[in-house]
C-alpha cells in the first residue's frame, strides 16, 4: 500500500505521515501541491491519496477533480484533510467524488476511523 500525502505545510505532512505509520502504513511519499502531486499519481504507483484543500498552485479540490477526470486514476481513493469548513465546500468535495473528509484540527482517532472506513468500502 503506497500513499501520497499532499499539503503545502511540511509540518502537517509530517504529522499525517507519523499517524499513518502508527496505523501501519510506512510506504508514504509527499508533495506540496496539486501540480507536483498529479504527475506523481499518474505514474500509477499510488493506492491512496491524502490531500489538503488550500494550497498555492493547484488546490486539493482541483487535484481531486483532475484525479477523477483521469482514466487511470478515477477510482483512486481520496481522503481530504483540510481546514475548509463551509458546508458548500464539503458538498462540492462530495460531488467531486471525495471518499472521506476530515476537518482540521483533527485527532489521530478520527483519521484512523476515516481511513479504515474508506478501505472497508473498497474491499466490500
Amino acid at each position: 500500500m503506497k500513499i501520497l500525502i499532499v499539503d503545502d505545510f511540511s509540518t502537517m505532512r509530517r504529522i499525517i505521515k507519523n499517524l499513518l505509520r502508527d496505523l501501519g502504513f510506512t510506504n508514504v511519499d509527499e508533495a506540496d501541491d496539486g501540480n507536483s502531486a498529479l504527475p506523481m499519481l499518474q505514474t500509477g504507483k499510488y493506492d491512496f491519496l491524502v490531500t489538503d484543500w488550500n494550497m498555492p498552485g493547484m488546490t486539493g479540490i482541483d487535484l481531486l477533480k483532475a484525479v477523477r477526470a483521469d482514466n487511470g486514476l478515477k477510482s483512486l481513493p481520496v481522503l481530504m484533510v483540510t481546514a475548509e469548513a463551509k458546508r458548500d465546500q464539503i458538498v462540492a468535495a462530495a460531488q467531486a467524488g471525495v471518499n472521506g473528509y476530515v476537518v482540521k484540527p483533527f485527532t489521530a482517532a478520527v483519521l484512523k476511523e476515516k481511513i479504515e472506513k474508506i478501505f472497508e468500502r473498497i474491499q466490500s
Binding site: 488550500n54 494550497m55 479540490i61 481546514a83 475548509e84 469548513a85 463551509k86 462540492a92 482540521k104
Partner: peptide, 10 residues
C-alpha cells in the same frame, strides 16, 4: 464566483 474558494480556517 462559486462559494467554494479555499478560505483556510473559519
Amino acid at each position: 464566483e462559486d462559494g467554494i474558494r479555499a478560505e483556510g480556517p473559519q
